[in-house]
Structures are given as structure tokens and as C-alpha cells.
């Protein structure tokens, strides 16, 4: 027997061993108990299989990966088909089909034929090349890309652009300014303090402008222009560093969650 056969067989034996360990023999509903034991055991094994990727690519990881791909593709297809076709389109298209699929008929709506027609055009790609109608599918692509481009252009423009400009413009560079003497006598480094408030607003305005300068494509970044754009990239980098540092916390908590599952629910080392 070679390794290719030994490894799967050994894994199955270990798996069944764990399953028996987790099985509650005194349970009333034994099929439920078997399922519960199966969930925990399989969850633990699959977790370890994925972690094994950190060492290197290996048969266990490949197994988990391929299983996950197949099952998830089918899952999303079923969910998508059900919610978009059966629950959304069919109740507006055909009373006969809705009855067959247990859906209430909600009255004809002709506009649902548009996506159906475009969808069918898309399927012409599957027809053999000799029929030479595969190009019809491009109509659908053109329709989708163009309409979403038109739809999103304006929506993004407002949220990402117009409102950002106006809120940058309305930043006061001298908040609550009551004179220089007052500023010096009340010098304060806390958030409420004038100095920090002013500094913050200046940093935002200068940061935004220098950041925009960094994104200039038609001018070489030399001279004063280069210096401003350099400031822009510095602001970006400090932010990137900070976001990275901030994210560490959340990512570790995911690992803690997985390890707690392994130690507590699966291996039972901790209570």
C-alpha cells in the first residue's frame, strides 16, 4: 500500500474515532446525537485542514478547498435561483409556473420580461460556435455595464465627491478664535483645546489638497509640486500604517474564536 491510499484511510479511521468520542450514547434521539457529534468532529477536522495550509499546500487542504468550492457554488446558486427567479420574477410572469412552484401569483408585470430576455441572450454563449449567434450575448453585457455605469456614476459622485468637497470647504481654520493673547493664555493640548482643533483642521485641509496633488498624472513630481505631492503620500502612508495597526486586533480575535472552538468544543482541553 502506498501513501496515497494510506493517508485517506488513516484519516477516516481517526475521524470515526473522534466521532465515537463525541457521540452521546445516552441521548434519546440518537440520529440527532450522531449529527451533533458529526458537526463538532467535522468542524474541528476542517479547521485543522485549513490551518495546515500555513505549513504548506497539502492533500488535506486540497480536500477542504475543493469541498468548500463545490458546496458553496451550489449553495449560492440555489439561494440565488430561489430568491431572484422563483420568488421575484415568476410571480409576475406566469400563474401556471407560480402555482407549480408554490408561489402566490402577484399579477403580470411586463418589465420582468426584459431581464429574462437579456438572460436568455446571455445563454447563447453555450450554443455551439457553428450556429454563430454567440455574439448576441454581448447585448446583455452592453446593457449591464452601461446601465450600471450610468446608475453608479451619479450616486458615487454625490457621496464620494460633492459632499467631500463641501465638507472640506466648511472646515474653519481658526475655530473659536478669540485673539492671539487668548490663544496663548489658554494654550491647551487636549481635544477640546483650540490648538488641537486648529491643528486638526489645518491637517485635514492640507492633507486633502496635497493628497489630490499626489494623484496628478500630467505633471512630473518635481520642485514645489513634488514636495507637495510627497507630503500627500506621507499623509497616506501614516494612515495606512495606522489602519494596519488597528486591524490587528480584530484579526486576532477571529483566531481566538477558532482556537477556543478547537480547544473547548472539539478537543475539550479547557472548560
Amino acid at each position: 500500500m502506498n501513501r496515497k491510499v494510506m493517508i485517506p484511510i488513516a484519516s477516516i479511521i481517526v475521524f470515526i474515532g473522534f466521532l465515537l468520542l463525541k457521540f452521546d450514547f445516552e441521548a434519546v434521539d440518537s440520529s440527532q446525537a450522531l449529527w451533533d457529534a458529526f458537526i463538532v468532529t467535522a468542524g474541528g477536522f476542517l479547521t485543522l485542514m485549513i490551518f495546515s495550509f500555513l505549513y504548506r499546500d497539502n492533500p488535506f487542504y486540497k480536500f477542504a478547498e475543493h469541498l468548500y468550492v463545490g458546496v458553496s457554488a451550489a449553495y449560492w446558486m440555489c439561494v440565488g435561483f430561489w430568491s431572484n427567479i422563483v420568488q421575484q420574477a415568476i410571480p409576475h410572469l406566469s400563474p401556471w409556473l407560480s402555482e407549480a412552484l408554490d408561489q402566490p401569483f402577484l399579477g403580470y408585470k411586463w418589465d420582468y420580461w426584459i431581464p429574462i430576455a437579456f438572460g436568455l441572450l446571455l445563454l447563447t454563449r453555450l450554443l455551439p460556435d457553428s450556429l454563430k449567434i454567440g455574439w448576441l450575448s454581448k447585448w446583455t453585457l452592453a446593457f449591464i455595464v452601461a446601465s450600471t455605469a450610468g446608475l453608479l456614476m451619479t450616486a458615487n459622485l454625490k457621496a464620494n465627491f460633492i459632499s467631500q468637497i463641501s465638507s472640506t470647504m466648511s472646515l474653519p481654520l481658526l475655530p473659536d478664535w478669540t485673539g492671539f493673547g487668548d490663544f496663548v493664555s489658554n494654550f491647551d493640548l487636549s481635544y477640546g483645546g483650540q490648538f488641537i482643533k486648529m491643528l486638526s483642521n489645518w491637517v485635514i485641509v492640507v492633507g486633502v489638497i496635497s493628497g489630490l496633488v499626489y494623484f496628478f498624472f500630467s505633471k512630473e513630481h518635481t520642485g514645489w509640486f513634488g514636495r507637495v505631492s510627497r507630503l500627500g503620500i506621507w499623509v497616506l502612508m501614516v494612515t495606512f500604517g495606522a489602519s494596519f495597526g488597528y486591524t490587528v486586533m480584530g484579526r486576532v480575535s477571529l483566531l481566538v474564536g477558532r482556537l477556543t472552538f478547537l480547544f473547548r468544543d472539539w478537543a475539550g482541553i479547557i472548560s
Partner: peptide
């Protein structure tokens, strides 16, 4: 596939 991490697992592979 349309599942985020299944996709990642496959691309990693």
C-alpha cells in the same frame, strides 16, 4: 464560486 473565502481558498491553491 460566489462565496468569499471559498474563492480565496481556491485562488490560494
Amino acid at each position: 464560486t460566489q462565496a468569499q473565502f471559498a474563492y480565496v481558498a481556491a485562488v490560494n491553491g
